[in-house]
Amino acid sequence: MNSKIKESFLYRLDPRTKMLLLLVFIIVGCMIMDPFVTLGLLVLAYILYRTTGFSRRQIWGLTKPLLLAFFLFFILTFPFAKPLPGETIYFYLLPGNHVAVTASAVLSGLASAIRFVFFIWTADLITSVTPTGDIVLTMNKAKMPPEASIAIGIAFSYIPVLKNEIGTVIEAQKSRGASFESKNPFKKIQAYIPVIVPGLFISIVKGREIARAIEARGFTYDPTHRTYRKDIHLVAKDFLVMFLAVLFAVVVSYFHSKRGWFGTTFIWNLLTK
């Protein structure tokens, strides 16, 4: 992680503020059905990424693998989006007048797809600017048992290790003539069994090693009275961010429930009236 990110406003917030921010993004993202407003949220997330110090290349690196899922989210909405009363049907996707393509279906599909990217972006952004140790401290403040918070902390630290192990398993199976390129999703899943099984086995072995290692470091000495070298404190900027985040959620919620704003065709209707 570059030093610019570590010095950014977002990185220096208390982890509880960042968790609240993520929660607000998720709630607001779930309430807004309009693709144009959702796109606005995505732009907001992009601005946050960039001002925090992430490069365009890093953001693209995260987004590129999501494009297939973006397309699937878009296309799979059509069978479920029934035409509104009196709505123009442009054409049907399948013969026999099945799966109608309408303005509301397109908008709904776009909203789902953009929302998916928005959720991934915000989750990635917040977890990238929150050190694992801070997550453990947040859970301790929330009165979680130390055994649980340490276990979650270890799980985060082990993601890169397991990623490396899985990479080696894939290379080992490729060397035995395995192919993971099938277009058929069922065949693709089947092809991955020789990767998943060793992956699970290695995870279990590692899990046992870790359990033995933390016991040998005295973790069971007195977990409830162990020292936490670092502590977290809420300061003025945290309260300000929390206030703005909650206000944002309340405002969106108010207009959504009382005025019926942010439905699928909210901006579309304004534009086409």
Binding site: P131, T132, G133, Y158, R217, Y221, R226, R229
Partner: peptide, 18 residues
């Protein structure tokens, strides 16, 4: 090695002792 940084790793045992 179960901690996020080298510093946290070395501190883990003494922290456990309180």
């Amino acid at each position: 090695l179960t901690n996020p940084t080298v510093e946290d790793e070395v501190a883990f045992g003494p922290e456990n002792k309180g």
